[in-house]
Design a binder for these strands. Structure first.
Lengths: 259, 259
DNA sequence: GTGATTACATAGTATTGATATATTATATAT
DNA sequence: ATATATAATATATCAATACTATGTAATCAC
């Protein structure tokens, strides 16, 4: 049983970006003329022209700029806005593809249920969501250690139950997201001797202090960022200020994995 | 800018369940005949009959059972399998709706980027995902307390950062999912005097012991279930066996919220 | 048996969508 | 001025689809 789906962007209740039109825009980008693009897709010239016209009319800012006559008889090119639209669409399409694949895996047609815990599409409160690749999987009897290589180059270790590894179908090389709460992050300065497996050096970007707690944003290179919520006293005791070099410590068991 | 999408189930490369056909099946379920269903949708009788016929032909197990003649001249009813299909489709559709809504929120058409950190469609390793409704929101300077009423009737308190509340757009009455790791769950028997806000009574359904840790599944009524991973010694010390009445304790700061 | 209602089947008509084709307008190169 | 390639527009043709109309078969209630 296959799952398929289209993706349509609507503007003022009118279909605006459809699969076919995207193909057409791509062809226009490539060939620089509506007539050539229509041949490449393929579709009739009229259909192509109509599509381009309705798109340009629907949109506030034009999608393509058309020129009649001139060198080579004229031509049609995408505007910057048009290119952005194409890019947006391809990103959305990609996300949707991932979603459908997941949905398919998880669907149990015979029972009329989803064989999964929880929702598929969910926004999570956790501030810290770092993406990376699984480098090594060490399986225990109940728990599994996952070694994840982050974009920033840092390595991270997460401990989750074997059941979770199985139900997510985790394998070496998989792209995953490491998820942990801001309150799971401890901060330390200077020499650290602590049993936790995850220690990340970073520079303090910002501090927002409340009455009791303070939110500290840590930057680890350009790519990864960690948010910590610690007590106000700790901030003062450690003398943390923006620009400080501090170490974020996270227990491996506090890190969840999303795929 | 609106995002819309259809959802089609395919069987051996043939479109099988489409939006229209689902409507038809629903009408058949309601009215008990193809002709009445066709009027209700509305569509022509022939189109309705053809649709039903092709569906029944494509599927291994029949979707509807048809009877010609008899009381009232005959009729058409859904089979159990057909009902399951309808249910599956509605679940899938619901998931897709959530996904699209989220996708829309997160899309920045002008820039051609997604204004999000993580992936949209993600399955999380956390075994414990309990759904409920937000009952009360108590906002602090940095953190917010969320009181969630679970399906089982239990109340749960989660503490997350104000930032998270804002970025999820959480409000009183919202349907949310409380997420926490199996290793965040402590188990206790007898009288408990502990500062944690979340204490849930349950019956032990199963125990799976490893060398060091053990996985204990707790049932809180029919609806909610909690999985705890605790040390093997704890299991022995507390004398936990299947059927035992135990108390699950979870720190409010260990509970994340998904929406 | 008659009537009622519905499934099942076929033929013809209408509508729609796409394609094909032809024509005009435009502006540059030669 | 002419040739050229393309946009812009209109009309005619074709194919697919959907709908309408009509008819047959089946079975139970009366």
């Amino acid at each position: 049983m296959e799952l398929t789906s289209n993706l349509t962007l609507e503007l003022s209740d009118q279909p605006f970006l459809l699969e076919k039109r995207i193909q057409l825009l791509n062809a226009i980008k490539q060939h620089g003329s509506i007539s050539k693009a229509a041949k490449a897709v393929p579709m009739s010239y009229k259909a192509a022209w109509d599509a381009v016209d309705t798109m340009n009319n629907l949109s506030q800012t034009p999608i393509v700029s058309r020129e009649t006559g001139g060198k080579g008889g004229g031509g049609t090119t995408l505007t910057q806005y048009g290119e952005n639209l194409l890019k947006t669409y391809s990103i959305l399409k990609e996300e949707q593809k991932r979603f459908l694949e997941r949905l398919k895996q998880v669907t149990d047609v015979d029972k009329g249920t989803l064989k999964t815990i929880g929702r598929l599409s969910m926004q999570i409160s956790a501030r810290n969501q770092l993406s990376g690749k699984i480098e090594k999987i060490v399986k225990g009897v109940v728990n599994t250690q996952l070694h994840v290589q982050l974009k920033s180059g840092n390595r991270l270790v997460s401990i989750i139950t074997n059941n979770a590894v199985e139900s997510l179908g985790l394998d070496k090389g998989d792209d995953v997201t490491a998820i942990f709460k801001a309150t799971s992050v401890l901060l330390a300065t200077g020499e650290i001797h602590i049993s936790a497996q995850n220690k990340f050096e970073g520079i303090v970007e910002s501090i927002r202090a409340g009455k009791v707690n303070a939110e500290v944003v840590l930057s680890m290179g350009d790519l990864d960022r960690i948010v910590a919520v610690i007590t106000k006293e700790s901030v003062e005791a450690l003398k943390i200020v923006p620009g400080s070099k501090v170490c974020a410590v996270i227990k491996a068991t506090d890190i969840m994995i999303g795929k």
